[in-house]
Design a protein around this nucleic acid. Structure first.
Lengths: 195, 195
DNA sequence: ATTGCATCTGAACGGTTGTTCATTAATCTC
DNA sequence: GAGATTAATGAACAACCGTTCAGATGCAAT
């Protein structure tokens, strides 16, 4: 029997998750019914419960997987803070541009998580922010960044970079390379690197 | 009879709107029932329909009023682009910090608007962005800003400033004055003003 | 062929949804 | 005080919600 009963994020049916990701991103968690997800998969609603214990777990698993993938992929080099910051900017934009649905859900559906699940996602988000703040702190320590409050700059930069997802569309006026270059230019100036 | 039948955003009961604003911001449009709004007001669900034709109008009116208030309040001075940009940054942060619930709804519930309503809200948002872009374009024309793409910088700055709402809390580590100063510092550098 | 397992169906569960409306209650006008 | 106006109730509507489960179905190993 495949009915799930533990964490199980690793065996949840990929097609169910893909359907939930797509529909949650379009309509929002609360507005999407299990029957709608089932219809997207081409199955009856009851069949979904072979792959997830309930709707909340479906949402949580999607968000957790996204955040874990983000943390696993963020570059972790040491050395020149300017190069590391530039890598971070490029990574963040590209990683988020690659999975707009997951990003949308991870930012918009936090309030639909049960408190315990919310805390776990927030912890992952905090760990990601710490990666950027470490780069900034290192740059300040080495005297290459002029930043008075690394925490604020961390949050400001991440908000600015994540904002790309609200307007960027492949095949639009700008290529992703151009977008990355423009944002790196702004970030570089904002942190006062070689200015 | 007070039953509404047109646009009516001006006569919708303030207490109903305040309750809807609060609950929509906390739980999301789709997750908040008319009965929950009625309970917050201290009334039965049927009574709400004396003040709004339906739930969708309640959401739309909240968003439209927020965007119109934003447009009505944004400073419209002429002259020194640096001073105008500084004013814009301070205005945006303070205006948004003052109404976190309305801001939250205006950003998160766009997908719950019917297409026609969505288009009207997007138009208002575009008009607001145009205000900032006009400042940037003017600064570029006068040679005081080093910005290669005013549209991207507009979106990046607004995303960065709006991000303040996700973490700022009155009485926290930083005062709003300090936050405004820090963000102005970043924006000023990012647009290459006097650098 | 038969057993056993994994999967899906389809109906059912109690409960909630947005909305309507006849009725009641309260307030205002004359 | 009578009459008109306004607002709230509370029940009802059909539709839909997440979830469960007995039974049907199909496939793999024996």
């Amino acid at each position: 029997m495949a009915r799930t009963q533990g964490s199980h994020s690793d065996i949840t049916g990929p097609r169910v998750r893909a359907a939930a990701l797509k529909l949650f991103a379009r309509g929002g968690y609360a507005a999407v019914s299990m029957r709608a997800i089932a219809a997207e998969v081409g199955v009856q609603a009851g069949a979904l419960y072979n792959y997830t214990p309930d709707k909340q777990s479906l949402l949580f698993d999607l968000m957790q997987d996204h955040m874990q993938a983000l943390l696993a992929a963020v570059p972790e080099a040491s050395g020149d803070p300017i190069a590391r910051l530039k890598d971070f900017v490029a990574f963040h934009i590209r990683f988020h541009a690659d999975r707009p649905d997951a990003v949308f859900i991870a930012y918009m559906e936090l309030r639909n998580l049960e408190p315990a699940n919310f805390a776990r996602i927030e912890a992952l988000r905090g760990a990601y922010e710490d990666r950027l703040e470490a780069i900034l702190s290192d740059g300040v320590a080495r005297g290459v960044f002029a930043v008075s409050d690394t925490k604020i700059v961390t949050l400001a930069v991440i908000a600015m970079l994540t904002g790309v997802n609200t307007w960027f569309r492949a095949g639009g006026r700008l290529s992703l390379d151009e977008v990355v270059a423009q944002y790196w230019d702004m970030v570089r100036k904002a942190v006062g690197a070689s200015c």
